[in-house]
């Protein structure tokens, strides 16, 4: 009986995720191929930009940028989408009883597809840089995906619920996400920040996450220290997210 209930939950999460993915490309011609094409075309654009127009004096800058950007995109897309997750499923929430947090989790999982489809690009860059890909990737990528999933889940749970009560949240999130983008070492390396300001970056849970992603992609190095810190802060965020989601969830029906 317990086993059956577990399988049902697994099926439900998978079906909701697949629904998100199918719906995203439902009426397009290329369909899910876009998830593969998008990062590829984006990489080509960056190569053109950085080789011709904005020549940055850093070795392999396109790779440097993309190795952080693709994981970041998973985060930012999930957070942005999560504002509409609960308020966009009113009839489901009001008329059927099921674990509501699955809606949020499936949104995040559906966005993960883009990161996975971007991996071939990363592998290509890594191959040409001569440092990877290596066996370390197989260990680190799943570990980092889980860490990022946990922190994203915490944040998205809270945001999706708060946005049901306070719809201004959606617009605030748009601004906060772009602030966070520049506060995370994505376009620049952590070390160019003056030391007095580094403390602020360290408070940002994504700093270590992105650092760890970049270490494995660019140097084939497992940055255990960053990974450890990631897990610590991820769990804090998850707990806070669950707390907010449960507390406010009791009166969700009154506001959606």
């Amino acid at each position: 009986m317990f086993d059956r209930e577990f399988r049902r939950k697994k099926d439900l999460l998978w079906l909701l995720t697949r629904k998100e993915i199918t719906l995203k490309y439902k009426r397009t011609v290329l369909g899910i191929l876009w998830s593969l094409l998008n990062p590829l075309l984006f990489a080509i654009v960056l190569v053109i930009a950085f080789k011709i127009f904005m020549r940055i004096k850093m070795e392999n800058y396109t790779f440097f940028f993309l190795s952080a950007l693709f994981p970041w995109n998973w985060f930012s897309a999930s957070v942005t989408m999560s504002t509409g997750t609960l308020i966009g499923n009113v009839s489901l929430i009001k008329k059927i009883r099921f674990p509501r947090h699955f809606l949020v989790l499936s949104t995040i999982l559906a966005q993960l597809v883009n990161l996975i489809f971007a991996l071939p690009i990363i592998i290509g860059f890594s191959y040409f840089s001569g440092k990877g890909p290596g066996v370390n990737w197989l260990i680190t990528i799943p570990i980092l995906i889980v860490a990022q999933f946990i922190v994203t889940a915490g944040i998205c749970l809270a945001i999706s619920m708060v946005n049901a009560y306070f719809r201004d949240m959606e617009y605030i999130i748009g601004i906060v996400i772009s602030l966070l983008f520049w506060m995370t070492p994505i376009v620049y390396p952590l070390k160019i920040i003056p030391e007095t300001y580094q403390i602020y970056l360290v408070l940002n849970p994504l700093t270590y996450l992105i650092t760890a992603w970049r270490e494995i992609f660019m140097s084939n190095y497992i940055d255990w220290r960053s990974i450890g810190i990631c897990y610590g802060s991820s769990l804090v965020f998850l707990l806070l997210g669950i707390l907010v989601f449960q507390r406010l969830g009791k009166r969700l029906d009154e506001v959606i």
Partner: peptide, 30 residues
């Protein structure tokens, strides 16, 4: 529950796809 006509149905999914999702939502495994 049968509280609302096709609660949880998504208009862009086919009847078959909606049957699967709804069935699981209502307590079956896939």
């Amino acid at each position: 529950p049968l509280l609302e006509l096709g609660a949880g149905f998504h208009p862009d999914l086919t009847g078959r796809e909606n049957i699967i999702i709804n069935g699981v939502l209502l307590g079956l495994t896939k």
